[in-house]
Each structure stands twice: as structure tokens, then as C-alpha cells.
Design a protein around this nucleic acid. Structure first.
Lengths: 145, 145
DNA sequence: TAACTTTAAATCGTTTACAATTTAATTGCA
DNA sequence: TGCAATTAAATTGTAAACGATTTAAAGTTA
């Protein structure tokens, strides 16, 4: 690559990742609107559908989000009746997050989203998996916060 | 993939892209802090360093950002003395964005960022280019807004 | 055990991000 | 020409996102 091309927008890996991220999240909207939730709510539920209850801090780590982001998100989800937040008995500093019945029930309605989204990306399952694995390897190798 | 695995967080392509995007942008911070700008300012400058002046709408399209996002961003960059905004003579609805001398001068200081960032991703130039091209192809195939 | 350190979550301030609406200029066409 | 439709950017409202700080609980140690 020519030296003067390094600063070209279309040569930036970061911009490609950043734009893809936003555009894919935009495609989720019609599906998530039906459930009345946002993308951030959705990935929070994905974690909880696998692990319930879960400590606040562990949830944040899974999602790569900090307490400044997650505290208001979880409070709004609590208000919608999707989950409950409670202090842990053995350590009053920690918060435990649990799904409500409503939060658990949403899983069924969400079950068809991943395949419909795959469809919308126009990728074959193999292409999608390969790309996802490449990104996971990149993420693992990035310098930590 | 087992049916019940579709909703697992780590199987989601979108979450991988979204997380990589945020983590890579985080790595830009020390470099951009030195220039006193944000990542959004940076990508805006990347466009302007290639095309100056540029109509507001064209800039938005390049960056995949809408007027609701870009109007305040450009106003704040104008306030910092990086660019100017002016109505177009032949069509008073349109805004033309031009770099100031200061905005042009920042390019020199930014010149080393891309290679330093490549370094921080721990990817070879070939790996980075391949991944970037894959994402561009995906972006192009996604259903438009 | 009292003071210091560490840890966890909440809070605060700033910046993005986008959908939806508004305002104003231009274009199309009857 | 005059009015409806379109277009461009700004505005409004809401929801992230994160750095930095604060508050409070728990752990450490002198």
C-alpha cells in the first residue's frame, strides 16, 4: 500500500468493523421492536438465558460493558419487568441479576431471530461462522483495557 | 450447530463485530487524545483530508451517519477551529464543509496512527486487509436503510 | 480494632447515535 | 405563476457508551 493511502477512510479496518456493527444492529430493529426491546437489552437477555441468576460484574464482563452503561440499562429492564436486581447476602456490594417469568418467556419469541438475521446478512452459515471466529480471535489478541 | 445454540451470545456474529468495534476504538484513544479529538472527529477528518470541501450530505453518506449525529459533531469541530460550515450559493439548503488551516495541519500528526494501530491489533497487514475487505463485502450486501 | 486499601456499583458529565419531526429552500407541475 | 411535493439540515427525544469520580462495603494490616 502506498504511504499516502494509510489515512484513506476505506483502508481503515476499524471503520469497516464500526460501520458493519452499526448496520447489522440496525437490521435487528424490526425484530426487536416486536419484543419491545433494544439491542443492548437483547444481548443482556442472551447472557441471562444462558446463566440465571448472574452477578452484575460477570454480566458486564461478558458484554464488554462497564457499570456506567449497565446500571441504567438494567434499571430500565427491571422497570419493564424483565429482570430483578438484588444485593447479594454474603457481599452487600454485589448485585445479583435474575430473570422474571416474563424475561424467561421472551426467549421463545426470540428463538427465530438468529436465523432470520443470518438471512438478512446474505451470508452462508459457514461464511458467518468463519467471520465470527476471525473476530473472536482478534478480540482475544487485542491489548486489554 | 445445535438448535438451542442459536441464542448463545458467543455464536452471534453481530456481537463479535460490535465488541471488536468498541475495543478497537478504545485503542485509538491514547493517539486521538494527543490530538485532542474523538474517534468521530477522526473519521470525519479522514474524509475531509481526501475531499475538501465536501457537501454535508456526502460527508454523512461516507460515514454512514445521519444529520442528527453529524450536525452537532460538525458544530463542535467548528468550535475547535478544525473546519468551517457555510451555506452553498446555488442551493441555500445545503451546507459545505471545509477544513481550516488547523484541520489540514492535523493530518501530519495523524499520519503515524494507522500503522501504530495495526501494530496494536496484532494482525499482519495481510490479515488486516483480508478482514477489512470481507467486512466491506458484507456491508455492501446488507439490505440498505 | 482502627486506619488504610481494595473492590463493587452507582453517579456524573460528555459524546455518540438514531428515529421522528420540524423548518426552510427548491423543484415539479397543474 | 402558485401550490403541492420533495429535499436538506436542524431539532427533539431517547438510549447507549465510557471515563472519572463517588459512595459504601469488605478485606488487610499495623
Amino acid at each position: 500500500m502506498n504511504n499516502k493511502d494509510y489515512l484513506k477512510l476505506d483502508n481503515q479496518l476499524c471503520f469497516a468493523v464500526y460501520t458493519c456493527s452499526k448496520e447489522i444492529i440496525r437490521l435487528y430493529r424490526p425484530f426487536l421492536d416486536k419484543l419491545g426491546i433494544t439491542y443492548t437489552h437483547y444481548i443482556t437477555l442472551l447472557v441471562l438465558w444462558e446463566t440465571d441468576p448472574i452477578p452484575f460484574k460477570k454480566l458486564c464482563n461478558h458484554l464488554y460493558l462497564d457499570s456506567g452503561t449497565m446500571t441504567p440499562v438494567l434499571k430500565s429492564m427491571e422497570k419493564k419487568g424483565l429482570l430483578t436486581r438484588s444485593r447479594m447476602e454474603n457481599d452487600e456490594r454485589q448485585i445479583s441479576i435474575s430473570l422474571t417469568q416474563l424475561g424467561r418467556e421472551l426467549k421463545e419469541q426470540a428463538a427465530t431471530i438468529p436465523l432470520q438475521m443470518l438471512c438478512r446478512t446474505q451470508l452462508s452459515p459457514e461464511e458467518a461462522n468463519t467471520l465470527r471466529d476471525t473476530l473472536h480471535r482478534l478480540l482475544k489478541r487485542l491489548p486489554q483495557a
